[in-house]
Nucleic acid binder design. Structure first.
Length: 435
RNA sequence: GCCGCGUUGGUCAAUCGGUUAAGACGCCUCCCUUUCACGGAGGAAUGAGGGGUUCGACUCCCCUACGCGGUACCA
């Protein structure tokens, strides 16, 4: 019926005060005919009836006063032919029953806001209506338009906070959490996408956000999503939080990769019964935001005296980690010998002199009184001087022998954490490969 | 088509009439580091266009352009 009113000029004719007069409906039909149609079970919908040329004005927390003229709005369907309400009816009734005081939604809802305002007026009274805020949209990084799951798939980044499967299409989607984002970082990056407090600050804890966030500084225009910047936020949070804040999560990642961390390396399990109930957390470590419950408890024990090897290692490599899974790549060699050894990085410059040096090194390491990074380094450099080889010529081979490649923290920190036995074993193994 | 909302470097953005137009991400150079990073110091890069108002406009007004959102018995 409505189809015949479509034209090239107006591809989407409105069902409004003008058009409804040309259609078959209860407003045009004889009441008796309507009754008989109803009695015969003819399908029907119920629409809102808008008066022509009426101004609907409301206040939006972000946009201020917004005005629409009813002439430009359809008589929206409220109750569908199957008896189910449309969103328009449902939100209003829902918000009323739930006594909603503030309604936040995306900007795409702005055009239908007047319908909802009118519904409030007709049904419950505008005085009971919630305050409105229509948030700017997050746009796709390239081109224009709002960010969608497809863009994430196409460009290789998550668009949802957590993993979820679309109930309609059954399509799975990877979340920020599963990609390796810290909850604090995610909330932080989202908060400053379309808002800032006027200062140069970019990193905010949850507490600071609660204190400083204000609707009047939320932008009206949408912001393009930049995954590089998103990763930067996560990197910053990984760096500034102690490893104990996320070690439990990282432990799971190691296990998922089939790398088991010995019990002795892990932080001692906390007996929750012994801890007082956390009310307020005050620490000087950047406000120390809570993650989830278990991490909250862990963080409470952050000042625990006994350091554990696992978190010590995590703290040692965290500068190199942008996403949580990076920890596995950056520190797996601490827990099991490197799978591959980049021996080609050493071979071209390998000499008999160096070989002799390492043989002697093994002997000395086995004899060493103590096993600490600085002492190991001093001794190593003295040996290099004695052998008349520049330390730099020997440092890289040692690194490759211990970690398998040209990466990782300070070599002697690694050796210290690896322990005498494992250090010697790895040097011997590589010497074998070089023979 | 119509209605609404927007428009400062590649991106996020400050500025609420007077600044050399901040800062951050990314990019480039250098320093530190005998690995990879972190860190430090620099660099390139911005007011969509046109009219007004004003002593003075990125900032206020109008027009145009462009973008986005909506225009469903989807949300």
């Amino acid at each position: 019926m409505r189809e015949k009113h479509k034209s090239a000029d107006n591809p989407s004719p409105q069902y409004n005060h003008t058009l409804r007069k040309k259609m078959r409906n209860s407003l045009q039909l004889d009441p008796a005919e309507t009754e008989s149609l109803l009695a015969a079970g003819t399908p029907y919908v119920i629409r809102i009836k808008l008066e022509p040329d009426e101004e609907v004005t409301f206040t939006d927390m972000i946009r201020g006063t917004v005005t629409f003229n009813t002439t430009g709005i359809d008589d929206k369907v409220l109750l569908k032919a199957d008896g189910m309400p449309t969103y328009h009816l449902a939100v209003v009734v829902d918000d009323h029953l739930m006594e909603i005081t503030h309604a936040f939604r995306g900007e795409e809802w702005l055009p239908s806001a007047p319908v909802h305002i009118l519904l409030w007026r007709y049904l419950f009274g505008e005085d009971k209506m919630p305050e409105w805020a229509h948030l700017p949209l997050i746009l796709k990084p390239d081109g224009n338009g709002k960010l969608s799951k497809r863009d994430g798939d196409r460009l290789g980044f998550p668009v949802f906070a957590m993993n979820w499967t679309d109930p309609r299409t059954k399509e799975p989607a990877t979340g920020f959490r599963e990609t390796g984002f810290l909850p604090v970082a995610f909330v932080n990056l989202l908060a400053v996408l379309g808002w800032n407090d006027g200062s140069n600050q970019e990193l905010y804890t949850m507490e600071e956000l609660i204190e400083k966030f204000s609707m009047d500084r939320v932008h009206k225009g949408g912001a393009k999503f930049d995954f590089e910047k998103a990763k930067w936020f996560n990197h910053e949070w990984i760096k500034r939080l102690p490893a104990s804040a996320y070690s439990a999560t990282v432990l799971e990642l190691f296990r998922a990769q089939g790398i088991d961390i010995p019990e002795a390396d892990l932080p001692k399990p906390i007996d929750r019964g012994d801890l007082p109930l956390p009310v307020t957390i005050t620490t000087d470590v950047a406000g120390f935001p809570a993650m989830d419950d278990s991490e909250l408890w862990l963080s409470l024990a952050a000042e625990r005296p006994a350091p554990n090897r696992f978190e010590t290692i995590l703290d040692l490599v965290k500068d190199r980690c942008t996403l949580l899974p990076d920890f596995v790549q950056q520190s797996a060699f601490f827990f099991r010998p490197p799978v591959t050894i980049d021996i080609d990085a050493v071979k071209p410059k390998w000499t008999d002199g160096k070989k002799l040096f390492f043989v002697e090194l093994i002997r000395q390491l086995e004899l060493a009184q103590t096993w600490e990074g600085p002492a190991l380094e001093t001794n190593f450099k003295e040996m290099a001087a004695a052998a008349a080889i520049k330390p730099g010529e020997l440092l890289l081979p040692l690194r490759v022998m211990l970690v398998g490649g040209k990466f990782g923290p300070h070599v002697f920190d690694i050796a210290a954490l690896l322990g005498r036995e494992e250090t010697v074993r790895r040097i011997k193994h590589s010497l074998g490969l070089l023979a």
